[in-house]
Nucleic acid binder design. Sequence first.
DNA 1: GCCAACGTTGGC
DNA 2: GCCAACGTTGGC
Length: 157
Amino acid sequence: MPTSVNFWLVKTEPESFSIDNLADAPQQTTCWDGVRNYQARNYMREMKLGERVLVYHSSVNPPAVVGIATVARESYPDHTAWDKKDPHYDPQSTKDNPRWFMVDLKFERAFKRPLPLDELRGVKALQEMELLRKGSRLSVQPVRKGEFEAILKLAEV
DNA sequence: GCCAACGTTGGC
DNA sequence: GCCAACGTTGGC
């Protein structure tokens, strides 16, 4: 695993939390809780303060990359795992030995034009992007520098 | 350690 | 709503 990865992508269902919700949040910052997948958790633990994160809207039509956030706080225990009433409650995560972690993300900007998945599939520079892999379900992913830059470029057009 | 059953994600 | 592609669980 390269330690130099410093661009990321997170998925969210805008029905429950959209990039507009992030922009409207206090300090335009929120904790990115509820991730319950080990690989995604491990990536979150690698996130460093200030690193840039693509925000992706899933389970909508069309699914699209919609903007950018930055890491506002590095990983710390996800307290929602300790809350019996939380849908993401996990009795196996304890305060002494937390199983799940989250980061804080701060809004950077929303693209004027969301970039639909469909369009991204046609972009050469993105051919190996994790997001575009068939059956890719990872909700927190590393993004290559070249991929991040290609996406930024598309967003300006 | 294998693998079938089950649950979830998420595009379509 | 369907279903492919995963990840997790648990019996053996």
